[in-house]
Amino acid sequence: MAFDGILFFPVTPFDADDRVDDELLRRHVGTTMEHGPGGVFPACGTGEFHALSTDEAAQVVRSTVETVAGRVPVVAGAGGPLGHAIGVARAAADAGADALLVLPPYLVGGPQAGLIAYVEAIAAASDLPVVVYHRANAQYSVDAMRHLARNPKVIGFKDGAGDIGTEQLIVRAVAEEGRDDFAFFNGLLTAELTQGAYRGIGVPLYSSAAFAMIPEVAAAHYRAYIAGDEDRRLQLLDGFFRPLVALRDETPGFGVSLIKTGLRLSGMPVGGVRAPLVDPSPAQEERLAEILEAGRALL
């Protein structure tokens, strides 16, 4: 499965009655697709997977698949309690997804053998291949990823932990297993800040929550990154991403909350976030508006 471009994680819009707003979701995905993402990941972290029922997640994936219409791969989230993860995986397959992103299990931390079993159980639940998400209570050792790389249904690794040394060893271990088809993603929050380092260890792809909120600026950064235009990349980094990260770090969960707020400020009424996340205060929202304005001015 080939990913050629920035990875797009859409939000899940909610209407005034806290239901998934299907029409607005299709509009959100459709307009953002115009900026050329390399893959779309619905009902994942930015899409509030943690707060969606199985039926809601399936609805989000189905509407995304229909909107994307085969232009790029669609990778749906699956994780949490194992029974729920299996149900969501099967529903995503029925909805037409191309692959699954295996999110961490619910609450418990298991040994490496248990994490391997968790991934393999989700992979076995449908015909879809899976991408391993390395973060929180699901951090995979080099040996665990070497083992999983022997399973042809495991096709990728997304790093959300930020340990560059371990990531480098995992890249090498997978290569030693003969997997030249494996996709590696930088999945850290606001990955634009760290992607230069990740590219240096053989991880060329990154996800961008900012792409869901302000795709024109995120795409400009991606073009500069691909072209090796460091002056332009650093201009966007200093003028937009650094102040965005400073605001994001003020409150847990703002990696999602700010994205939905930015969309609302841009005229797309996607609603607020579901608990346990919270929306920004009026003062924080005002600062986000200033950051967005500054980002657009750089274009």
Rank of each mutant, 00 (worst) to 15 (best):
V11F: 07
P13E: 04
F14T: 12
D17V: 04
D18M: 10
D22T: 15
R27Q: 15
H28S: 14
G38V: 09
V40W: 02
P42W: 02
P42T: 11
G47V: 05
H50C: 08
D55C: 01
A58D: 04
V60Q: 09
S63L: 13
V65H: 11
A69F: 00
G70L: 13
R71Q: 15
V72H: 02
G77H: 07
P81W: 06
A85E: 04
D98P: 14
A99Q: 08
L100W: 08
L101F: 10
L101S: 12
P105L: 08
G109W: 02
G109A: 15
Q112A: 14
Q112P: 00
S126Q: 04
L128R: 09
Y133H: 13
Y133A: 09
N137A: 06
Q139D: 10
V142H: 03
A144Y: 04
M145G: 11
K153V: 07
G162E: 06
T166G: 01
E167F: 10
A173H: 06
E177I: 01
N186H: 05
L189I: 13
L193A: 15
T194Q: 10
G196V: 02
Y198F: 14
V203F: 01
A209R: 06
A210M: 12
F211T: 13
D238F: 00
P243F: 12
R248T: 15
D249M: 09
V256C: 08
T261C: 12
V270W: 07
V273L: 08
R274H: 03
P276Y: 06
L277A: 08
P280E: 04
Q284C: 05
L292D: 09
G295Y: 06
L298V: 10
L299A: 14
